[in-house]
Amino acid sequence: MSAAISYQRCTPCGHVWYFARSFCPKCGAREPVTSPASGAGIVHAVTIVDRAPTPDMKALAPYTLVMVDADEGFRLMAHGAPRLAIGDRVTGSVVELAGRSIPIFKRA
């Protein structure tokens, strides 16, 4: 089971962002449009977490975290497949991992 990553867009000013809000953080306009993203993007940064913060995440370590620039114009943090590097074209969706819904990307 996987679902689309969602993002928001402000109709009056065109600003696009990831952290859900009930207004546009740039111009303050209300009722931004929440949409599913295509999942396509480019890797902007990568880290491999060897030292996990909690017992449940320690079971998964080492794992890869990425910052991805989505084609729709927002940036997000997500899990990534091993060996992803800056500049890689990726595709992502939201999956269940260790009991939580998290976005994960792999090479396109």
Binding site: F19, A45, V49, R51, M57, A61, L65, M77, A98, I102
Partner: peptide, 23 residues
């Protein structure tokens, strides 16, 4: 909602910054 569930740490946030800045 959008970061902590991924299992990051302070070093991981800075690890991302380091990776990009070094690049």
């Amino acid at each position: 909602v959008h970061e902590v569930p991924l299992g990051p740490t302070i070093p991981a946030y800075y690890g991302l910054v380091a990776n990009r800045y070094m690049h």
